[in-house]
């Protein structure tokens, strides 16, 4: 099923001026794919990712995820979708610095309405997988960039989402940590997750199955990469 977007447009008002930052964007992402959205700064790639992740709203077009038309969903259903279907990884990690690693990781569970058993075990399992188990009670502000990004990934996986949306996940990392994060993302793809990465780093983009290139709010190229 996956993600199907047709004729997506996004208009924003800045300084009393209306501007289209996305226009006529058609995107299809199949389940289990690892796709890179590339383009220059301000091209609209993050906005596209936010629309995919239902944290932002499109102005025009149609968007369906796993056959569900997002326009027909109520706010609470969309919130549930954000909680259970998507896992987000951000360039600035998007972590709550005054909270501990463990508190950050279990946050999606606490915010959601689903009651699950063994939450603690699940959190520790994720931490173990990402090599941050010993940091569980550490405050996030004391972590290195790589540790923070691994914490963000552990949080993104907490609700076992189908889609991982990563906005410049390696933007604040050195090359060693970049490689580690990319390896983790590839491993996640191997276990069936669909990964969408926004990046302007071509090395990162080349690790993906496919590239969607955005220029001035429009898709200009869709390139399949042969590994």
């Amino acid at each position: 099923m996956g993600i199907v977007m047709k004729n997506i447009g996004k208009e924003v008002v800045s300084s009393h001026e209306k501007k289209w930052i996305l226009q006529n964007v058609d995107v299809e992402i199949k389940e289990g794919e690892m796709v890179a959205i590339i383009g220059k700064s301000g091209a609209g790639k993050s906005t596209l990712l936010h629309i995919i992740g239902a944290v932002d709203k499109k102005t025009t077009g149609e968007y369906s995820i796993d056959g569900q038309d997002i326009d027909k969903l109520k706010d609470s259903k969309i919130a549930k979708l954000r909680n259970q279907t998507f896992g987000y990884i951000m360039q600035d990690f998007g972590l709550l610095n005054e909270d501990t690693v463990y508190e950050n990781i279990i946050l999606p569970y606490l915010l959601g309405s689903q009651s699950r058993k063994n939450i603690k075990e699940k959190a520790y399992e994720n931490m173990e997988m990402l090599g941050i188990k010993k940091l569980a009670s550490q405050k996030v502000e004391k972590l290195s960039g790589g540790e923070k990004q691994r914490t963000a990934i552990a949080r993104a996986l907490m609700m076992d989402p189908k889609y991982i949306l990563a906005d410049e996940p390696t933007g604040a990392l050195d090359s060693k940590n970049t490689q580690q994060v990319m390896k983790i993302l590839r491993d996640l793809q191997k276990i069936g997750k669909t990964i969408v990465i926004v990046t302007h780093d071509m090395d990162v983009a080349n690790c993906c199955d496919r590239k969607i290139c955005i220029l001035d709010g429009q898709v200009v190229e869709k390139e399949k990469i042969n590994h």
């Binding site: 706010d75 919130a79 549930k80 954000r82 998007g94 709550l96 946050l107 915010l111 959601g112």
Partner: peptide, 16 residues
Amino acid sequence: EKRMTIYYMYGFTKRK
């Protein structure tokens, strides 16, 4: 602000 953005991203509606 950051907290609310993260809460929103992970399952809160704007009303919440």
